[in-house]
Write a protein that binds this DNA or RNA. Sequence first.
DNA 1: GCCAGTATTATTGTATACAATACGATGACT
DNA 2: AGTCATCGTATTGTATACAATAATACTGGC
Lengths: 222, 222
Amino acid sequence: MLDKGPKDQSVSLVSRLSSWIAQPEQVHGVSITENELAAIFGVSRTPLREALNFASAIGLIRRQRSRSIEIPPLSGADMFQLSRTREELEGLITFQVSERIAAGEVSIDGLEKLNQRMSALATIGDTGVLLGAGLDFHEYMRENSGNEVAAGLLQQLMLRLERYRQCIRALDDRSGHIVHEHGQIIDAIRAGDSAGAARAAREHVANARESYRAQLAKHGLF
Amino acid sequence: MLDKGPKDQSVSLVSRLSSWIAQPEQVHGVSITENELAAIFGVSRTPLREALNFASAIGLIRRQRSRSIEIPPLSGADMFQLSRTREELEGLITFQVSERIAAGEVSIDGLEKLNQRMSALATIGDTGVLLGAGLDFHEYMRENSGNEVAAGLLQQLMLRLERYRQCIRALDDRSGHIVHEHGQIIDAIRAGDSAGAARAAREHVANARESYRAQLAKHGLF
DNA sequence: GCCAGTATTATTGTATACAATACGATGACT
DNA sequence: AGTCATCGTATTGTATACAATAATACTGGC
């Protein structure tokens, strides 16, 4: 209980909470009491409840009134809707990034640099690092779209998708595809084809979704 | 999510807070202290902070760490991004509603009924009621899309757009267009043209956005 | 007069205490 | 034995109190 150095916990509590939820060993669909969670994180109920409110606002957990916290069960349908929605938003911000680059409001250098880094990592073959670089790519798109609204919503989706990502991180080997598909997006942007870039981004998400679905089905996860 | 519980304040606090923020007389971009807000709503800081966390999670307010609450300023750019993002999500769920109707998973009766009601109201000419019915239409789409994810994100956007809606409610007379555009969406769904329905939905949002932009510009609001 | 450094105050972050509510168990009655 | 009412306990919702941090005012030195 004596968590020394108790500066602002609420911000980090949200990320700690989301990490905790994302752990595959958590039994999904089960209810947990606030006191239990508070004990787990070593804080009192007050900051915990603030984190819970935040988490429930973005759909990470569910809270009926006067009921305990429920970790939403993982399901293929849920994963599909998350990814399908992400597809639209990634398409939108990719389009907007492309437009901004075409208009000279943003330099393409950042994307080129990320692309080179990805290619370099692909030859090395470190899957973990490569996947991290892949996330950097999408983060860069969010930050340079000029659309904070869509970027914020996308980040919510990424947090929720993280739970599924955890399940298949070890299994997935789409790294080669990822590099290629990111490359296609950048190519379209470079050519000034914003609509094409958006299309490529959407296909990229759709491909990832299909890969996830296949992996999860193959291992009979849900 | 409406005010119902006599005791549970935290849920209703969120809606009360969003209504309060949406009031045009609020000076946007100004900072407010938690104690002031707590006094305004007649509650202690604890439930207020929970509502604030919820509101900041969905972008209704901004809270830097250890700083007072900031009501994000209204701006044309913000309105554009909200509406532009909404356009994508409305397109998506309209597509999904259409697909579910085509597959027989959902009856089209609900939409037909809403359409008839809208037409009837249009002849009467009560703008306020008609706009409410328009919102019902979109709510129906969200609830019958089978995509809780996109529906939840859309609801966040609608809450944030409410602030802009408040500014021009009295000015707007797009009622006729709304009825017509909703009709086009329904027609496409009835014809089994999901892609067409999605396109119509997106155009509907884009038209509303342009109308908003023009109205706000005409009155020099921001 | 102005700037730096410190003291003071205001405001946020956290913990504890209490109240209200929902859930479960126990027992009475049919 | 089954069902319903009532009570007891567990859990959430709210308020108050305290701690830590950021903002502000003040004083002394230059």
